[in-house]
Amino acid sequence: MPQMSIVEALNQAIAEEMARDERVFCLGEDVSDANGGYGGAFAVTRGLHGKFGPERVLNTPISEMLIVGMAVGAAMAGMRPIADVQYGDFLFCCMDQLVNQAAKMRYMSGGRVSVPMVMRAPVGATGRGAQHAQSLEGFFTHAPGLKVICPATAYDAKGLLKTAIRDDNPVLVFEHKLLYGGKRTESGALSMVGEVPAEDYTVPFGRGVVRREGKDITIVANLLMMYRAMDAAAELDEDDISCEVIDPRTLAPFDYELVIESLRKTRRLMIVHEDTYSNGWGAQLASYIAEHEIYLLDAPIKRLAAYDVPIPCAPVMEKFVIPSTARIIDAARSLMKM
């Protein structure tokens, strides 16, 4: 099977879907690589201009409201746009289009109008300060009408993005800057390459995946935190603490069943995300388990998340704010003592 980075997997998914379906097109700032342009801030749309031309790889002015509003409108009128912002934080510039318009259109029309659009946004802290760092999944899992996905492997990136493009609803795709792989160097980046089948495939929404089996603690973690949980699990093995790591892959819809099934075995739950602590998807998962399956648990639920602060720039503070492998290990040890 071909090996590739997440950037390459996303690029392939878009290229294949654009070839398969004429309604699919990309728009965003610097998405084209014509005349020395970037081909996307993280090079995800590189090469697409050459294959599909400027109309289907539309470079826009720096106008997020235009980008997203156009995507909503084009989707309502028969197209399948893939919109792009350079950093997830900029989604706040177009919240109205996402939350008031895209999310509510289907409902307000009594089911008569749908908005089959994809909104791609990179998340994660990379030493650039508070306005280029936020993990903002929680804002969007809170908005009925939006689907939210967060692929952490090349296989999932391609398969989930294809599902997103074919879905008849607005889908937000959160991609982690430190997982993209490829040529871009970045301190703390994991150069993720993974196997991606050559043939067409999709990954369904609402299905998490067990990344590692274990019997003592279930750790649910997404994006970069999933890898930290895996590293922690490997170390905890030496302490005879066996962790099962679940990657939810999609946050809305969420695969509660997979977590519950795992808890029947482990009876202990830890949730880790890079989004802030309060009111995010981790809080939702914890409350869901407490509400429906509290008797499965032998210990309180442990949650690790970024502290409730904007992301600071200085490396020592940034590192402190975001859950580290060491913090996951400590938390697991204390959870086993409860």
Binding site: G127, R128, G129, A130, Q131, H132, P312, C313, A314, V316, M317
Partner: peptide
């Protein structure tokens, strides 16, 4: 105080 960085 180290919180802002180059862009702030």
């Amino acid at each position: 105080h180290g919180k802002g960085g180059a862009m702030h």
